[in-house]
Write a protein that binds this DNA or RNA. Structure first.
Lengths: 191, 191
DNA sequence: GTCTATAGCTTGATAGAC
DNA sequence: GTCTATCAAGCTATAGAC
């Protein structure tokens, strides 16, 4: 029983750290947030946090990993006829801090030797696969013209999502889901 | 004459610094390039460089400013029927370092108090205006259906460009101009 | 206009006690 | 699992000589 309790506490610490990290980054901005800043808010020291995650990048990647898992679950639920890209965008609009973290970390991970690079490579592949599969499924039901290449469409939808998130950093008035839906609608027009 | 010569030398120093900054960032990556790194390659000290630009951000923004000016000139030249977004993408493909710098600096400028924020706000406005005007011009000639809202189309094309650049950081195999042309073609289909 | 020297700060990470 | 203490390194920016 002791082991169980210990392990549960450990899990709670991790949860608290991840959640707080996101909060602080949202408030101070990615570039101005240090491990110390997060630790202070958690009520722990920098060293204490690193005991759980090893490095800063591990910690941040873990935030995104958890979010991705939650997003997959949310997508599994039935919800009208909207494509995944639009549904995810609506969801993300509720958590701007997460979008900020995602964008910043991905850009940093462009460096060939960045520790988070592998995560983003894999993530890009898997997300692309989901979106492309959705397009193909709709083509079989006639919801999307067969003339549209599913992989290209997926690339467009995903890049558009990322680009809108990037632009939103500078111009917060952009409504990402709306623009995505507009684009989706244009792509769906019969040839 | 002395004044003329002095000023000309100053201009040459600035040029050399800007050019070298881009080279070094391309080689080492944005996140791993310090003023010292650039200065070393220029054959000058960090302090010497700051005499010309004041701060690091000023220097980097100046690189983008010059590039923007050159791009505007290039766009003015006649060149087939391709829309500005595609032409610019083809041009950018020749200078990946510049795309890397642009993307990184823009993300960093998302922070509300970042010194480069104003530059990107203004830039976004002006680029949007150019692209939207191009769409409207084509609508008058019949090259683009009137049912397409020009501002929305411009937002899509620009965000798509940015997003593709972002993704290219992780997956260099993406052909940005091709995807943009594909999207442009789909948007141009008559209603 | 360029240099030397350095201030002044922040950072991520580690060692070792408890 | 968490803390204290500290390291080693890095950075931008500035002061002042030349």
């Amino acid at each position: 029983m002791r082991e169980r309790r210990t392990s549960a506490q450990g899990r709670e610490s991790r949860e608290l750290i991840l959640q707080t990290a996101l909060e602080v980054i949202g408030r101070r901005g990615f570039g101005s947030t240090s491990l110390r800043d997060i630790a202070a808010e958690v009520g722990m020291t920098q060293a204490g946090m690193l005991h759980h995650f090893g490095t800063k990048e591990n910690l941040l990647v873990e935030v995104l990993r958890q979010r991705d898992a939650a997003t997959r679950e949310a997508l599994a639920e039935q919800d009208g006829d909207e494509p995944p890209s639009v549904r995810v965008a609506r969801r993300n609009a509720e958590t701007p801090a997460l979008v900020h973290l995602y964008t910043n970390l991905q850009v940093a991970a462009s460096a060939p030797d960045h520790p988070a690079r592998a995560f983003f490579e894999e993530r890009q592949r898997s997300v692309h696969a989901v979106v492309a599969a959705d397009v193909r499924a709709r083509q079989e039901v006639g919801g999307m013209p067969a003339g549209v290449d599913a992989d290209t469409a997926a690339t467009v939808l995903l890049a558009l999502s990322d680009g809108l998130q990037l632009q939103q950093g500078v111009d917060p008035s952009i409504d990402i889901a709306e623009i995505l839906a507009w684009t989706w609608e244009r792509l769906s027009r019969a040839d």
